[in-house]
Design a protein around this nucleic acid. Structure first.
Lengths: 256, 256
DNA sequence: TGTGTCGGATTGTCGGACGATAATTCCGAA
DNA sequence: TTCGGAATTATCGTCCGACAATCCGACACA
């Protein structure tokens, strides 16, 4: 084949179902349809776009999957604001497939959690503090069950995230938090003193937030994470090993 | 309505197309099919799952949209490792719909960029440094065009992200970076001294990375971000206002 | 007020079909 | 025998029509 000068750009026709999805998405993002408002039935979309119902369905499935539209009780489609977990699980999957190492997760978590605790110490509401107190109390009660403690740990950090009042930070954290959870679970199951140290750290974090003491918050967040790292090593793992094998058991059950 | 004791869990039947998607996803995540390997044609999946082709298609669309499977040149489906941008754009959309404020974005970016620059200063390879040098040189050449500078700024930060060698951090940053870009573009267009200050900050950041000077890196990252915030205010904006209106123009064109 | 019943609307799923396009095979010419 | 182009095949994107299940609303009934 002769090397011919590139006079034309490669033709790339976008499939119809994608065009449908993009059209609807644009309308939503530009505020044409506001959250909660209906988007029309499949039949209506068929008429508007002039494509077959199967095509429409493939298109709206994408948006539905993204959580930017949702079926309400009518089964009719309505615009909705995607909630955090839905997005996070995908990024977490990507991390698993990329076979990220514990060290990467640790570094990122350190940065994100320090920022979160700072925000929480400055802005936590009384209600959020109460919820965290309740969480700590429950943790104290189930200290003998590593799995339960791990779950409460995850919840505690989610609460701090909410208390920080920073949604960008929350969205940034969620994916790695999803990886932290199974890792913590594994650690707590193997390191006897783990649960007690975790509980103490939570207590001190909560206390720092209550006292609006940013520095103490940072200090204990750091300690908490360092415990986590040491626990990971003490459980016989290498910091530079991928963490996928740990995640899998959880990922498959919690999906969707 | 009387408050009745919840004896039963809400019934939730999962549609077939979702089951198809989940089944394939599980197989991929547990390593049953590795990246690059084919997943079977639609016809084969129809036979295996015992459902109609339309149903299979709705299912694989979801995974395809997530980027965990892809069509290769054969058009056949193969497992793939989702790339960052694909995931980021969705989280960014969520931020827009949540109407996050500039302050939230600023705080999160601060935490993420400081961690990134730390990693880059410690681990940047010669090739990454060369790429960053090239980026800075190009920036110097187009200093008169705010839009071009904004784009190169975005690229520069992506390069630092790659240089940090931390994929978790990269994945965490990408969504907010996508919001930072249009904001920067707006600022540079309105603040005359913006491009020059930006270029200087990049030069200093690059220099810090080259010298493996973590502290200098942190210092200049902080300055760079503070410039950004001040620019935002000087352009006549309120830190606590949602940033959606800025993002929209870009979001619609860059999607997919 | 609470409970059957009915009709209409909407979705989930199905089977079948066609054209377009890339991959593969095949065949005739050099 | 080898090579290039033509014919065949495989696969996907899209379309059509159809059916059952389910939900909503209305209405009658106790």
């Amino acid at each position: 084949m002769t090397e011919l000068a590139e006079k034309f750009r490669r033709i790339h026709s976008t499939p119809a179902y994608q065009l449908v999805a993009e059209a609807i998405e644009r309308r939503i993002l530009t505020g044409g349809i506001r959250p909660g408002e209906p988007i029309g039935t499949e039949a209506e979309l068929v008429k508007q776009f002039g494509v077959n119902r199967s095509t429409v369905r493939e298109g709206i499935r994408l948006l539905e999957h993204d959580g930017i539209i949702q079926r309400q009780s009518n089964r009719r489609l309505a615009v909705s604001v995607p909630h955090y977990e839905r997005l996070a699980s995908r990024t977490t999957r990507a991390m698993v497939l990329h076979e990220v190492t514990f060290r990467e997760l640790y570094e990122a978590s350190m940065a994100l959690q320090l920022a979160t605790i700072e925000g929480a110490a400055q802005r936590a509401t009384a209600a959020m503090i109460a919820a965290m107190e309740e969480n700590v109390a429950r943790t104290a009660r189930v200290l003998g069950e590593p799995a339960a403690v791990a779950e409460l740990d995850s919840e505690f950090h989610t609460l701090i995230g909410r208390a920080s009042g920073n949604r960008v930070l929350q969205l940034a954290r969620e994916p790695s938090d999803l990886l932290v959870y199974p890792t913590t679970k594994m650690i707590l199951a193997k390191v006897p003193e783990g649960p007690a140290r975790l509980l103490e750290a939570h207590r001190m974090l909560l206390d720092a937030i209550r006292r609006r003491d940013v520095e103490a918050g940072r200090l204990w967040a750091r300690r908490h994470l360092n415990d986590w790292r040491k626990g990971f090593e003490r459980a016989g793992n290498d910091l530079d090993q991928p963490i996928d094998s740990l995640y899998l058991r959880e990922a498959t059950t919690s999906s969707s």
